[in-house]
């Protein structure tokens, strides 16, 4: 009887165990790799046989002209993504207002599908659409804009458009997917509130403004704070694929820089040092976001 009680007490913990093991393996074990930043590591040679260089690579971070450029790019992309965070919520509210269920489902499916398209396909699509010989320029020519083939415009090669264009692609890809959590939250809103509002003469807009929107704000703020904590994880694949000589200086974010230094240039130790710097900044931002949450909402997220 006592054994059974003890089993029930630990049952939930046991259920969580596989996931804890996964986190340990993939999130904590790699932290041991940080030691490589203190050595001149050469693949194939045991770490103990490599030269110990102490904080050489951390000092290098402050003299590397690229460090501040890639941090600036990362923060701009992250900043834009934070500015755009209300859009999935607004999309969910608008989607919820479509009362014709089949239409609502079709829109939801079509807006969610891009999330499952890999970035390499998105790149190919973008190339077909936006290149000088692409569909967009062809359509513009049909309508008399850029009639001369020499005047065609390719946004993929415009360094000034990098931040917004890449953010737009990111938004297009994830809008429907990110709206799902808000749609789920909307279904949890008590229908009686809507009925009462309608009795009081509220239309669709007022219902959305005074019932749906406030009900979603809690979810929105939690996600916003988590996003701020995750600010520097802007991703890699998208920027890697869309990088070209014309956009390189603006599109290179921290993750891409780590890839270029660590894997392309085989400069593993310095790559690890940059990764550690990214971690330190992320922890700092998360702490700030957590404190901001306490000040705004009266409670910590973590």
């Amino acid at each position: 009887m006592a054994k059974r009680k003890s089993f029930y007490r630990y049952r939930l913990l046991l259920m969580a165990l596989p996931f804890m093991v996964l986190i340990l393996l993939f999130n904590y074990m790699p932290v041991f790799g940080w030691i490589y930043s203190l050595y001149d590591y050469i693949p194939g040679i045991a770490l103990k046989d490599c030269d110990f260089v102490g904080l050489k690579y951390f000092r290098m971070l402050f003299t590397d002209v690229n460090t501040f450029r890639v941090i600036k790019n990362t923060l701009i992309f992250a900043g834009i993504s934070i500015i755009l965070t209300p859009l999935p919520m607004l999309f969910a509210i608008l989607l919820n207002e479509i009362k014709l269920r089949p239409v609502q489902k079709i829109i939801q499916i079509f807006s969610t599908i891009p999330n499952f398209i890999s970035w390499i396909i998105v790149y190919s699509l973008a190339f077909s659409l936006f290149s000088h010989d692409g569909l967009v320029n062809a359509v513009l020519q049909v309508f008399g804009v850029n009639v001369d083939a020499g005047n065609t415009y390719n946004i993929m090669g415009d360094s000034n458009a990098v931040y917004w264009f890449q953010s737009f692609l990111q938004l297009w890809k994830t809008l429907g997917w990110n709206a799902i959590i808000y749609l789920a939250a909307i279904t949890g809103i008590d229908q009686e509130l809507y009925n009462a509002a309608k009795v009081d003469g509220a239309g669709y807009f007022k219902c959305a403004l005074h019932i749906t929107f406030p009900a979603l704000s809690e979810t929105y703020f939690v996600l916003l704070m988590l996003n701020i904590g995750n600010l520097l994880n802007t991703g890699f694949e998208q920027y890697f694929l869309f990088k070209n000589p014309q956009t390189a200086s603006n599109i290179e974010v921290l993750d891409l820089y780590v890839y270029r230094i660590g894997l392309e240039s085989q400069d593993y130790s310095y790559g690890v040092a940059i990764g550690i710097m990214k971690f330190a900044i992320s922890v700092l931002l998360l702490t700030l976001a957590n404190k901001a949450a306490k000040r705004i909402r009266g409670e910590y997220i973590i």
Binding site: I42, P43, G44, I45, D49, L263, E264, Q266, Y268
Partner: peptide
């Protein structure tokens, strides 16, 4: 380069390998 670095680190490589001169130190040491 990535696969070569991983295999050099693990020692799990092909019976015969072909490398560039930049890997000589890795292989010999």
């Amino acid at each position: 380069d990535q696969k070569l670095s991983i295999d050099l680190t693990s020692g799990d490589m092909c019976d015969i390998m072909c490398i560039g001169p930049e890997y000589i130190e890795n292989v010999l040491k």
